[in-house]
Structures are given as structure tokens and as C-alpha cells.
Write a protein that binds this DNA or RNA. Structure first.
Lengths: 351, 351
DNA sequence: TCACGTCATTACATCGATGTAATACTCCCA
DNA sequence: TGGGAGTATTACATCGATGTAATGACGTGA
């Protein structure tokens, strides 16, 4: 005895207004002209009965549901939350509703995800992949339109991205301009650059570019794997300190990672930026409120998401058009955390 | 020519397997026994055609969609993101999908929301209200089952809550135990305790309880309105400092607010906890990684959400049963930010 | 006054899955 | 070997909204 059966239908409205169900439908969709007289009568009946159209029925009939999916690794990181918020807002503005899926917590989720994307009658999917290979998107049939956001190397699907390699270069250059010479990289190691982790690869590549032009070498001992969370950043920073190597700056691949690193640096009594410079990536709200405020790579999250929704909308309208890739510009926001020159950290062992 | 029409249907599968559509349905639902032979044949056909059932059709037929709604004020605050994450996870575990709605950004959203909740064919709704009055939930007809989470005074709807008044009492008592006497309250003022803001009211009430038992009075000049975000916390803290009143502790009604406050205190050169104690509420991940780490009121977000989903599930199963309210226990997590006694802040003007 | 065009309205079929009731089939035992 | 129990399968109707084609009403011009 499901509740919807108790809801009024067009038939009920029609009966009350003394017209046929189709006329009610005409009033609702507005596709066909309805005389002013009957229109007002129908509208009154709808109000009286508190009528709301049944979306499942409409979706079944039209093949459109007005629902889009948004899949991301993990809602809890500050960046993800910010993006998710923007997606929901932007979707609302277009009369769309958002279904959220998280992909990070089980290896098989990516697969489940595309399966569910089909089951759940979604008009389109915005996918923020972290480990999603091209193959999954490419090889699954009957997928709704998909737009990728992020720095994935992917050309068979519409996508929105920022030039992460350039951003990485800018970041490293900034740190060097401020006097840094030995930059810890929290975000991945050079050996790690597989297709699976193109985003990390690009940021890292950018850093290496910049180091190269400055004739500095990319010390592998300054690179470390990291989980993309605050706790992950803290762990990675601890590991780095345990390595007992000298460094004078930290470039974290997300602001959250940077916050974890900041915490551990404080814990060890290292001062930012007097001893060590720190910078992040994404410019989440919190970045302006850490202590010291965090220098970071900034881009407009709203623009980012709006571009994705635009792509999705045009893809839904025309499935055959060539795929497009939209770049969102980024910039460096300099805050106190990188006001150099840094004194540098020299581990006790090397004294 | 919407994409779903190109998707294989049960009819297609049936044709390929040489059975009737209903038999395919029987295989999928498993409600009726199907011979081992035909079952395997049908399953093979489903795999070959890459069949996925159409949820709109199923939803239309069954009145259930497998989708629940989650409405919250704002995804970007750390607490909301954490809760949203838990909702998505817990829903996944039950084979449900989550649609997200944000309510904070327009005054009319609450209303829109319940309207949309009905349109969008949702089996149930988990609502984290901030300003949602009882009336909206009570007076709208044909609403799917609703579970409220938060400290709303509300008895006509299932809800999950923590004892915020007790929590406020515990928090204030802790601060006083650590030597605080003049506690800034970032979260609302006493005059402000309307039904609309019962949550704030309860936390505030708890603080006042504790102050009362200690024979301290609730100085109105130490209470301030605040937007529930990091920036809001910072603003409020600045306003408090501008008031040039003496204080020796800050109790922020969320961790995010506390983080904004911490930032501003640093900015003013006040040391935490040497000069001023600070504590928050919610125990989000970040609270352990601020500097100094933040004392806060903690409760299990997963339990919180799981309880809500349980309530929702049983409400969906039986719409007539009496409403229930589930309390989730909380505790105080003491960290460095409240290691007193504090020296106290005395504004220049009062010197 | 009658035929014809215009526009509002209606009857009907359809989207895909599934419950109900009826049918076909299998197997066993008298 | 035929009847009955029991099971696998099918035909059909249905959920609610909406496109299509047909009907109805009305007004205009000859």
C-alpha cells in the first residue's frame, strides 16, 4: 500500500475540473493551447487537490527524469564538498535534481557506479574520477551522457579541467621565487605516474618542469604518497619528517592535505612560513582561515561546475556532436604561508 | 529520441531468451520460482544485451523508487559534508540512492523543498532543518515519510537528535572546570530563542544552565549571532573583539565556527589556550588538526545517520505506527584548545 | 442557411515492469 | 492410462503522464 497511490493524479484533477485527463496534461505541459476558461478551472482543481505530477510516470513516458547524477570520490574533503555544493546549486537553477554517489571507498565502486547510473534513470552524469580509467566509461554501453571533471586524460568524453601541469609549474615557481630550494611534494611520487593517476601526474609533472628550469633536481626522497584527506596529509608529513631529510617548503596537492601537513609542522615546532613554506591546491574556504593563511592554487568552483552542466545539457540535447573539453582558468593566491624566504628544516641526524 | 528508448527492455531480453516478458520479470524480482534451465537462459540474455531495468517504470508500477532525499542547509560546512557522506554510505548499504537538496540559500527553499520532495518521487526524506518550522512538515499533504535530524522541537515526525542542552551544559562546565569565567558564546543570543531556532536555543540553554549553577551570570555582551560557517565564525569573533569586553573562553556552536574564531584570535595575537580557551561542537575530522587541536562535543555521525535511515525504513514499511525519537549519545573530547587555566583577554579600553 | 476552417477537447495507445488470473505442462499414482 | 496435484509460463491489465489522431464546437463567408 505505497503512499503514492494516495496522491491525486491527473485523472482526479480532470474529474474535479470536469475535463479530460489530457486537458490537464495540456495545462501542465503548456504544449497545446488551452482556453483561458478551462485553464483556470484546471489550475484551481490542481490547487484544491494539491496535485503534483508523478515523475516516474513522466520519466517513463518521456525518457527524461530531470535528475542528474554526480559521482565523486568522497564527500568529506573540503574540495569535494565545495564542488558538490556548486553542482547542487547549479542544477537547481536549471530545475534539475542531483543524485550523489561516492566512489572512493570500494575498488569496485566505479563499476557499480556506472551500472547504477543506468539503473537509476539519470539524464546525465557528472563524474569526478580519481581512479576511474578511460575504459570504464568507454566500454560500458547504454550509459547516459557523461561529463568528466578533473584532470583526467580522456578524449572520448566531454570534460572540464584546469591545466594542472601549468598550475604545478606556477606553484613550484612561486615557492622558488620565495626562496625555497627543497620542496616536499605531498601528492604522489614520480614512479607513480600511471594513466590511472593522471591528475597527480600532471601536477607533479608541472613541479618537475619548474624544478628543471631552475636547474634543481627532483629529489625522490622529497616525494611521498598521500591519502587525499587532512589525516592523510598529516600522515604523509610525519613520514617525511621521519625520513630526516632537509627541506624548506611543502607543496600539497590539495588544501586538505596541506592542512594536515600544517598541523604536523606545528606539532614539530617548525614555523610556517619562517622555517618552512607551505602551499595547497583548490582554494577551499578554509584555506583563508588556517594559521597562517594558506597560499593555494585557486579556480572558480562555480564556473567549473557550470561549465560541466552546460556540457551535459548540450550533450543531452545532441548526443552525436563531437566531444568538447573546457578549460577553467586558475591562478595563484599568495597568502602568508609562503612569505619567504624560509630558514629551512634541517633534521637532527644530518647535523 | 531520448537515450533510454535505445536501451534493451524486458521484452528484448524475453525475445532473445525465447520466453515471455513476465518470465524475465520473475527472474529479476525472484518472487516466483523459475526453473533452473530458463533462469540461466534469461540471465545469459540479460548479460548479452546488457540489460538494466528501467527504474521509472518500476517506480511507477511499485510506488517505490529506491531513492531517498536528503535535505540540509548547506553542503559546504564540514559537519554537513560529514553527515552527507554518512547518509550516502548508509543508503548505499541498503541499496538506496540519495538525492541531495540544499535549503539554506533562499528563504523559500523549505517550501520548494517539500514540493520537490513529492515531485521527485522519493520514498522518503531525511531532513536536517535549520529554519524549518514544524508547520511546513505538518501542513503539507501527501509528503513521503520524513525523518528529522537535529535538535528541532518536533513530535509529529520521527527524529534523531542529540541532547543539545545537556551537551551545552557539559561544554560550559568543562570550560569552567578549566578555569574560564567569562565565556563568549558564538551561536546565538538569548533573545533569539524562538521555535525556529530550537537547536541554538537548546545549546544556549545548556550553557546558561551551567553558568547558573556556578552562580555566574549570562552576560549578554558575550553572546553573538553568527553565520554557521568558518567565515561566519571569524566575523563573529571580530565583532566580539570590537566590543572590547573581557573574556577568557569561546564556545562555538559548531567546529567550523570555532575554526573561524581560532583564526581571528591568532590574528589578534591571542594565544589558545594560554590566553583564551576555545571549543567547538560536532567533532569533524578537521577538529583534531587545527592548531591547537580543538576540544569539541563529539557524537558518532554514522550512528546518527544510521538511526535516521532505520526510522525511515520502518516508517516506509508502516506509515501508521507512532512516531519515534531516537537520541544519539554524545561526549566531550578534550584537546589542547581548552587546557586551562586561561590568562584571559582584557581589551585595551578597559585597562 | 449550409459548408468549411479553426481551435479546444477527447479517446486511445504507449512508455517498461510487474501483479493477477488463467493456461500449459510435468510428474506421480491409482 | 487417465485424473489430479503442483509448478512453470503466459496473456492481460495496470501504474500516471502524454503524444497522436480523431472528434466536437464554434464562427465565418457565400
Amino acid at each position: 500500500m505505497p503512499y503514492p497511490s494516495s496522491r491525486p493524479t491527473m485523472r482526479d484533477v480532470a474529474e474535479r475540473a470536469g475535463v479530460s485527463p489530457k486537458t490537464v496534461s495540456n495545462v501542465v505541459t503548456g504544449a497545446v493551447t488551452v482556453s483561458e476558461n478551462t485553464r483556470t478551472r484546471v489550475e484551481a482543481a490542481m490547487v484544491e487537490l494539491d496535485f503534483v505530477p508523478n515523475l516516474s510516470a513522466r520519466g517513463l513516458r518521456n525518457g527524461r527524469t530531470g535528475v542528474i547524477g554526480f559521482a565523486l570520490p568522497d564527500l568529506t574533503t573540503a574540495f569535494s564538498a565545495s564542488i558538490a555544493h556548486s553542482v547542487v546549486e547549479a542544477a537547481h537553477a536549471r530545475g534539475l535534481v542531483v543524485q550523489i554517489e561516492e566512489t572512493a571507498f570500494e575498488p569496485t565502486r566505479e563499476y557499480d557506479l556506472v551500472y547504477r547510473a543506468r539503473t537509476h534513470q539519470i539524464d546525465g552524469l557528472i563524474l569526478n574520477p580519481v581512479r576511474l580509467q578511460d575504459s570504464v566509461v568507454d566500454h560500458v554501453r547504454h550509459l547516459p551522457p557523461v561529463v568528466l571533471i578533473g584532470e583526467v586524460e580522456q578524449h572520448s568524453t566531454d570534460r572540464v579541467f584546469i591545466d594542472s601541469r601549468q598550475a604545478g609549474r606556477t606553484a613550484a615557481q612561486h615557492l622558488m621565487d620565495q626562496g625555497a630550494r627543497r620542496i616536499v611534494i605531498l601528492g604522489g611520487t614520480a614512479t607513480d605516474m600511471s594513466a590511472k593517476q593522471a591528475a597527480l601526474g600532471q601536477r607533479l609533472q608541472g613541479v618537475l618542469d619548474a624544478l628543471g628550469s631552475a636547474q634543481l633536481d627532483a629529489a625522490p626522497e622529497l616525494q611521498v604518497e598521500v591519502r587525499w584527506s587532512i589525516a592523510g596529509g598529516a600522515e604523509a608529513m610525519r613520514e617525511m619528517l621521519a625520513r630526516e631529510v632537509a627541506f624548506d617548503a611543502v607543496f600539497a596537492f590539495t588544501d586538505s592535505i596541506a592542512m594536515g601537513a600544517l598541523h604536523v609542522l606545528h606539532e614539530y615546532g617548525l614555523r610556517v612560513p619562517e622555517d618552512v613554506l607551505v602551499m595547497g591546491f583548490d582554494n577551499v574556504e578554509h584555506a583563508a582561515y588556517t594559521w597562517p593563511p594558506l597560499t593555494t592554487i585557486s579556480f572558480d568552483h562555480q564556473d567549473y561546475v557550470t561549465a560541466a552542466l552546460d556540457l551535459l545539457a548540450s550533450r543531452v540535447a545532441d548526443r552525436g556532436s563531437p566531444t568538447r573539453a573546457v578549460e577553467i582558468s586558475h591562478s595563484l593566491v599568495a597568502r602568508r604561508s609562503t612569505e619567504g624566504p624560509p630558514r629551512g628544516h634541517t633534521p637532527p641526524a644530518s647535523l
